[in-house]
Measured scan of single mutants.
Amino acid sequence: HNLTITQGKLFFHYNPKLCLSEIHKMEEVSGTKGRQERNDIALKTNGDQASCENELLKFSYIRTSFDKILLRWEPYWPPDFRDLLGFMLFYKEAPYQNVTEFDGQDACGSNSWTVVDIDPPLRSNDPKSQNHPGWLMRGLKPWTQYAIFVKTLVTFSDERRTYGAKSDIIYVQTDATNPSVPLDPISVSNSSSQIILKWKPPSDPNGNITHYLVFWERQAEDSELFELDYCLKGLKLPSRTWSPPFESEDSQKHNQSEYEDSAGECCSCPKTDSQILKELEESSFRKTFEDYLHNVVFVPRKTSSGTGAEDPRPSRKRRSLGDVGNVTVAVPTVAAFPNTSSTSVPTSPEEHRPFEKVVNKESLVISGLRHFTGYRIELQACNQDTPEERCSVAAYVSARTMPEAKADDIVGPVTHEIFENNVVHLMWQEPKEPNGLIVLYEVSYRRYGDEELHLCVSRKHFALERGCRLRGLSPGNYSVRIRATSLAGNGSWTEPTYFYVTDYLDVPSNIA
């Protein structure tokens, strides 16, 4: 807008934040220059609390790290170098490059900038070799853009010569660093050979998330399962459950009422301010606690030095998902009996873990797994792929695949051998790939016309006998059925096997 004052003059007093240069501009645009008398524009009460600059400061050096910015700028000295009290560095987070010096300023003089007072450097006698002032900004957020400017702080001049310097606002972004852990990993099994893994992005990506790394490792069953005799009275049979499938998407929606109208769909109840505040506090606490764990609990591995020492970490090797089922080394339970199943799973520490690289999504279907087997899954978020990966501390989750139908069934015939004193040795093959492992066998036998009897055969007993022995049988026709019990439950009964026990007292003698 054009402003013209045809008559009258300007009068400025007691404006401590208004620089004289701005008042002189007002004289020019209003056409009143030359009308004012000496005392109409006070030299001592206008701009006496402001830094009124008329020179431009330029930054000469900028260096960044993930949490620091090192700045240096060209030296500046007023005509009387004693008038320079120091520099004021202003900075704040700036997602967009549209910041002005006066953003967030209120009537009390406060604003949204963080201000650092910096002492002037030592003055050199040689004007050509003056030290460049600077400042190291610490405690910054990774991968965050900051708006920065600097200006001088000078003393009051009796001659009211307006001098000083100020830089333009520059924008500097800190470097990326390792992201925080992925949030809320959930693993479920939808079949006997697959596990579905879902997660949420890290709360602090500290860069642009480029991919996720998912490692999985087959877990050995508890050692007590191999040692305890679950045929003993009072000892509860062990059981394991597989990871249940995901709930429906509708039930997972946030901010939804727990109660549904019987007449149909209901609208979600909005969260109160107290609920939102509580969630923010919980989120802040979780982030602080995660940072504490990362800094205190997890110790970084030592990389190899120039002395030739090897990095103890196993090298990563990509495998196809079809090879995942046989990740671990199978060892027989008892070496003397080769027909026992290889369900003991000690994992070799030198073995390469299978892994998958996930790009542009937060889910993965891990296939080719062994049925009813526990897996430990390790999830890392990465925001750099080359020249070397920059990934987060791992988040861990466990899951067990679903049982395989008929995996616990005894394959092959049940054979028998009759000894003296009416002892019958029953023999059968253990299931080759049971659900988890076989903890015991149930032997059901009966003599024709009598009630059915049951015998429990422990895992250890089966390994020693290759089956079991029935003792003290009365003469007669017998039928026997056997079924295995694994961590997933009972298998199917075998087809009945028949044998006849004679009275050993009636056996004919070869003595003449």
Rank of each mutant, 00 (worst) to 15 (best):
S203T: 08
S203N: 15
D204S: 14
G207L: 03
G207Q: 02
N208L: 07
T210N: 02
H211A: 06
Y212A: 04
L213M: 12
V214M: 09
V214E: 00
V214D: 00
V214L: 07
F215W: 01
F215K: 13
E217Y: 13
Q219V: 06
Q219N: 07
Q219T: 10
A220Q: 13
E221Q: 04
E221V: 03
E221M: 14
D222Y: 12
S223Y: 12
S223K: 04
S223H: 12
S223F: 06
L225M: 12
L225A: 06
E227R: 08
L228G: 12
C231S: 03
L232M: 09
L235S: 07
L235Y: 07
L235R: 09
L235T: 05
K236W: 10
L237A: 14
P238E: 03
T241M: 11
W242A: 04
W242V: 14
W242H: 10
S243G: 06
S243W: 08
P244D: 14
P244M: 12
P245M: 05
F246P: 08
F246Q: 09
E247I: 05
S248L: 11
E249P: 04
E249L: 10
D250R: 09
S251P: 15
Q252C: 12
Q252M: 04
Q252L: 13
K253V: 01
Q256D: 14
Q256G: 00
S257I: 04
S257P: 13
E258W: 11
E258R: 10
Y259R: 10
Y259W: 06
Y259D: 08
E260T: 08
E260K: 02
E260H: 15
E260S: 10
E260W: 13
D261V: 15
D261F: 08
D261H: 11
S262E: 01
S262W: 04
S262D: 15
S262Q: 10
E265N: 11
E265D: 14
C266G: 15
C266N: 11
C266P: 08
C267K: 09
S268V: 12
C269D: 12
K271R: 13
K271H: 07
T272S: 05
D273Q: 12
S274T: 11
Q275C: 06
Q275S: 09
I276S: 10
E279P: 08
E279K: 02
E279C: 01
E281A: 12
E281F: 14
E282L: 12
S283W: 03
S283Q: 08
S283G: 04
S284T: 12
S284K: 13
F285E: 13
F285M: 13
F285Q: 12
R286T: 13
R286E: 14
K287P: 12
K287V: 14
K287W: 15
T288S: 09
T288C: 10
F289T: 07
D291H: 10
D291Y: 15
D291A: 11
D291I: 08
Y292S: 10
Y292P: 06
Y292N: 06
Y292G: 03
H294A: 14
N295R: 11
N295Y: 14
N295A: 10
V296Y: 07
V297H: 08
V297F: 13
F298M: 14
K302N: 11
T303H: 11
T303K: 09
S305H: 04
G306T: 13
T307G: 12
T307N: 09
A309S: 13
D311K: 15
D311P: 10
D311S: 14
P312L: 13
P312K: 05
R313G: 04
R313I: 07
P314Y: 15
K317G: 08
K317P: 07
R318D: 11
R318K: 13
R319T: 12
R319N: 09
D323I: 13
V324R: 08
V324Q: 13
V324N: 14
G325C: 11
N326H: 14
V327K: 15
V327C: 15
V329T: 05
V331K: 06
P332G: 10
P332E: 14
P332Q: 12
T333L: 06
V334C: 04
A335H: 10
A335V: 12
A335Y: 06
A336V: 05
N339S: 12
N339I: 13
T340L: 08
S341L: 10
S342L: 14
S342Q: 13
T343C: 05
S344W: 14
V345Y: 12
V345G: 05
V345N: 08
T347N: 04
P349L: 08
E350I: 06
E351P: 11
H352R: 05
R353A: 05
E356L: 09
K357P: 11
K357M: 13
V358G: 09
V359L: 09
V359K: 11
V359M: 14
N360S: 09
K361S: 10
K361T: 10
S363G: 14
S363I: 10
L364M: 06
V365T: 04
V365P: 09
S367Q: 09
S367W: 12
S367M: 07
G368C: 04
G368Q: 07
G368I: 04
L369V: 09
L369M: 08
R370M: 13
R370T: 00
H371A: 13
T373G: 05
Y375N: 00
R376T: 10
R376K: 14
E378R: 04
L379T: 04
Q380L: 13
Q380R: 03
Q380G: 06
A381L: 03
A381F: 02
A381Y: 03
N383Y: 13
Q384S: 13
Q384L: 05
P387W: 12
P387H: 06
E388K: 08
E388W: 07
R390Q: 06
C391T: 02
C391M: 03
C391R: 01
S392D: 02
V393E: 15
V393L: 05
A395R: 06
Y396M: 05
V397K: 13
V397Y: 08
S398H: 10
A399S: 10
A399W: 04
R400S: 09
M402N: 04
P403R: 08
E404S: 08
E404W: 04
K406G: 12
K406Q: 13
A407Y: 07
A407V: 09
D409P: 00
G412L: 10
P413T: 09
V414C: 03
H416A: 05
H416E: 04
I418F: 11
I418N: 10
F419K: 12
N422C: 06
N422E: 13
V424A: 10
H425L: 11
H425K: 11
H425D: 04
M427E: 15
M427W: 06
Q429F: 13
Q429G: 14
Q429M: 15
K432W: 08
E433I: 15
P434F: 07
N435G: 01
N435W: 00
G436A: 12
L437A: 12
I438L: 07
L440V: 07
L440P: 01
L440T: 04
S444A: 03
S444R: 07
S444P: 01
Y445D: 00
G449N: 09
G449S: 07
E452R: 07
L453M: 08
L455Y: 10
C456Q: 02
V457R: 06
V457L: 14
S458Y: 11
R459G: 09
R459V: 15
K460L: 08
K460E: 04
H461M: 12
H461S: 11
H461I: 11
H461W: 10
F462R: 07
F462P: 01
L464V: 12
E465N: 09
E465Q: 14
E465T: 11
E465W: 12
R466H: 11
R466Q: 03
G467A: 03
C468T: 03
C468M: 11
L473K: 01
P475E: 06
G476Y: 00
G476P: 00
N477S: 04
N477D: 07
Y478C: 00
S479E: 10
S479Y: 02
R481E: 03
I482C: 03
I482Y: 01
R483G: 01
R483V: 02
A484V: 04
T485L: 15
T485N: 08
L487H: 00
L487N: 08
L487F: 14
L487S: 14
A488D: 03
A488Y: 14
N490W: 15
N490D: 02
N490L: 08
N490S: 15
S492M: 11
W493C: 02
W493P: 02
T494G: 01
T494R: 02
T494L: 02
T502E: 15
Y504V: 12
Y504F: 08
L505H: 09
L505N: 09
L505I: 14
P508V: 11
S509R: 05
S509H: 01
